[in-house]
Design a protein around this nucleic acid. Sequence first.
DNA 1: CTTGACCTTCCAGTAGCTGGAGGAATTAAG
DNA 2: CTTAATTCCTCCAGCTACTGGAAGGTCAAG
Lengths: 127, 127
Amino acid sequence: MNISAASKLVGLPVKTVRYYSEIGLVEASSRSDAGYRIYNDMAVRKLMFIRRSRSFGFTIEECRELLSLYQDQGRSSAQVKLIASKRLAEIEIKQLELQSLHKELAHLVKACRGDHRPDCPIIDYLG
Amino acid sequence: MNISAASKLVGLPVKTVRYYSEIGLVEASSRSDAGYRIYNDMAVRKLMFIRRSRSFGFTIEECRELLSLYQDQGRSSAQVKLIASKRLAEIEIKQLELQSLHKELAHLVKACRGDHRPDCPIIDYLG
DNA sequence: CTTGACCTTCCAGTAGCTGGAGGAATTAAG
DNA sequence: CTTAATTCCTCCAGCTACTGGAAGGTCAAG
């Protein structure tokens, strides 16, 4: 399978697949005589794994760790859980931040008449 | 006031203040003979305005617009409200994303025993 | 007069791609 | 069999919003 076929199957842009190969995250299983990347089933499965991991917001480095755990039969689930818990905590922090941001900004937006006049509680708050 | 005094007053790193001057967001009010940036009250107020705007997650370009509205006596509050509403909508989208992410990941983390054994619902889900 | 803290500019790097140039290879059509 | 379109390659640049560091000028204190 060449890169565009793999890309379609996995649901990642060709550029991204090439990027992952460049940084050594998921390499092509081999190269054709002309130097084209060739992806076999295992490589495609790894790309899928990465796509799903990325969609959870794991960083590339975390994805690298997760992928190596995925391939490691001797892993402990504790190692996986640790990484996932860390990400979960980050999500929770972000949620709290957004909550307070939303509260404040929604309040200001609501208080702003949004007409032709210049007086504006949003600007007043920022200034 | 030189850059470090302004930086302390405003609560932004010196590097950031210099960066804002470089991109023409908030310029120093003047320069000393030696070429040092000098910030007067107005410049400091602008920096404060930007710091607060940034803390709401407005992009630099949005901050630029907001700042120019801040300084424009002929602005309409509608212009300000539009930008703020856009940001509010982004926040709400992000909140929904995080909500579903959190739900899914929390579920997986909960289901993972986190012991020495290799079987792991998180890895199973990703793979 | 020297020391140390500050200031300047410029260059490079961060994360995770994305776009594009220039050139080779493959494929489909005529 | 030639041509044109598509796909592939590598390499370089750019995105956001800074941040770190090098090389060198400036300033106040002792």
